[in-house]
Design a protein around this nucleic acid. Structure first.
Lengths: 338, 338
DNA sequence: CTGAAAGCGCTTACAG
DNA sequence: CTGAAAGCGCTTACAG
């Protein structure tokens, strides 16, 4: 295939050890020797074989990103964040897309095959025992949007705070009767957002009936069905909080299809701030999640852990739990006017 | 780290060659021996190290996907298509996200480092010489949404046909004066769509003025600016065809912001059929691109090429150009009513 | 500062 | 059907 380290060594008149040293920039190499080697590398268009290097050094320079196939935007933004850091660190990104329900846990395979130096798991309900096994071998592992206890560094968004924020805003509009459309329980997201809503209502002497909490699944269609459900009830909610934007948008459509005006008859808010939240009519009031930052910060931490290991060879790890703030994005669906 | 092939061999009382044979299911192995080995593998939770295997066999079982950071949906759908096939083939997906303008061409590095068995380049303006170099080493390479001649298998969407379809539809509405908002020229997409429009207009004795072709860049904001440009002209177009949905949606907003009704005053259509095309108001009439299928079909072909190589060791390659059909999605922005 | 050599964990002819 | 051994292309102590 391409030129190997032997070809370079021959051409430069040195041993492969020396070539390796200049390629990796380690140890002292005589300037003139270095020049010769560099020249040979250039002429032969040499790039060290990644597999051989990985096998010999026990570092692959690959990062594994395990991510479920959720909505386009969430996936893509996390990817972007991680990828930017990966590129900067001169790593290569290996992506495993895991189905949420799947119990096969392909990330384990990824790890056992020695593919990656570290891994980032997004919204995967990993088993603690598995995580522990990986950590013990010295492979840093970080969780995004999933919390399994305090032994694994975790990056989450402030779901509870976001839920509170948007609830406060709705209460500020004077609404009294609320409904909530849940997501799935694979991650704590939906429940945390609901908890925020509940607490705020409680503080204001309000509450939400159990029957006004309808099940959704985050995906297209479930928000529509949830609203149809809600409209069967004797009393109509004045404001609907959907656990994500996709469901909120579907809810708006369902309401409009039933001749109700949003926000005049029923206000609707979501969570995510997906790209199209501002394009629908009325514009969707929602909670912005710093998704890109989530990916980037997690990747940064991974690399700093890798760095630390290399330096002090310490396997003692602090396991911080980083919570990124959410922010309110006010448009028109809540009842605000421009 | 984990158990190696030596551990397994020892435990099963065989040589590592035999372990390798049962792991890879090659050659005859005595059933009883196989059982013993399988048992040892199970007990030790053995998984062959991917790097060592790759180095020895010259096959990495990794596929490289090189893709620009375009809009979320396009990226994600291609990824999904490719990923589904990759998973089925028991391969691992390595993703390089390359900036469009970048001339660094990271995919070359990916290849030279021996990372991947094959690669799929999406909308990357690769140089023929580079592609050739890769092909000569026997690494299959496939292009998606980019065409550099007939030596590389290529998967594209029928941009021209899509442009024609939607143009026919607009002409059917009786519109006479048209405008086109272009994308960038990195890929032929925008020009092909315009060509479709032009040909149809011509066939109907109509035409589009050069000054009614305004430059856009596919991204957020450019559609808005393009419309402001258009509105300065003495004569207003009756229908605007934007080279993609993002710009079409921006165009609609710009028109509405200037007190014009869509589609009553100006009709607007796009290209892509992004998820939110149906959520805006009016619903966007557009051309659906089989993006997921594009990724999947390309991946299928890659694997069949890999298969073929393995079987007949022939490096002679046919280089088909597969064009996937587009389809018209009619909503309301073109002037149709439910 | 540099070379020789062991070793990373596999696969794969080659013998038998 | 199975083992011994070379080889994949590097890195990294170890000497010098």
């Amino acid at each position: 295939m391409s030129a190997t380290i032997f070809d370079v060594a021959k051409r430069a008149g040195v041993s492969i050890g020396t070539v390796s040293r200049v390629v990796n920039n380690r140890d002292r190499v005589h300037p003139e020797t270095r020049e010769r080697v560099l020249k040979a590398i250039q002429e032969l268009n040499f790039q060290a074989n990644a597999l051989a290097r990985g096998l010999a050094s026990q570092r692959t320079n690959m990062l594994g990103l395990v991510i479920p196939q959720v909505n386009d935007s969430f996936f893509f933004q996390i990817f972007r964040g991680v990828n930017d850091e990966v590129t900067a660190a001169n790593y290569t990104l290996l992506i495993i897309s895991q189905t949420r329900q799947g119990n096969e846990h392909r990330y384990l395979e990824l790890f056992r095959r020695g593919h990656v130096d570290a891994m980032i798991l997004v919204a995967i309900d990993a088993r603690r025992a598995d995580i522990k096994q990986i950590q013990e071998t010295g492979v840093p592992i970080i969780l995004i949007q999933q919390d399994i206890g305090n032994h694994v560094p975790t990056f989450v968004v402030d779901n509870y705070g976001g839920g509170r924020m948007i609830a406060e805003h709705l209460v500020g509009h004077g609404y009294q009767r609320f409904a909530y459309i849940t997501g799935t329980d694979y991650t704590p997201d939906s429940n945390e957002r609901l908890r925020g809503l509940r607490d705020v209502l409680h503080e204001h002497g309000l509450s939400i009936d159990d029957e006004d909490i309808v099940r959704g699944d985050f995906f297209e269609g479930s928000g529509y069905r949830a609203v149809i459900d809600l409209l069967q009830r004797p009393q109509r909610p004045r404001a609907i909080f959907a656990a994500n934007d996709q469901m909120a948008v579907d809810a708006i459509r369902a309401l409009q299809d039933h001749g109700l005006r949003v926000p005049e008859d029923v206000a609707v808010v979501g969570f995510d701030d997906v790209p199209f939240a501002s394009y629908i009519s009325p514009g969707l009031t929602t909670v912005h999640q710093p998704t890109y930052e989530l990916g980037r910060e997690a990747a940064r931490m991974v690399f700093s852990m890798l760095q630390r290991d290399a330096e002090q060879n310490s396997k003692v790890r602090i396991a911080p739990r980083v919570q990124l703030p959410t922010s309110l994005v006010i448009r028109r669906s809540c009842g605000c006017v421009d």
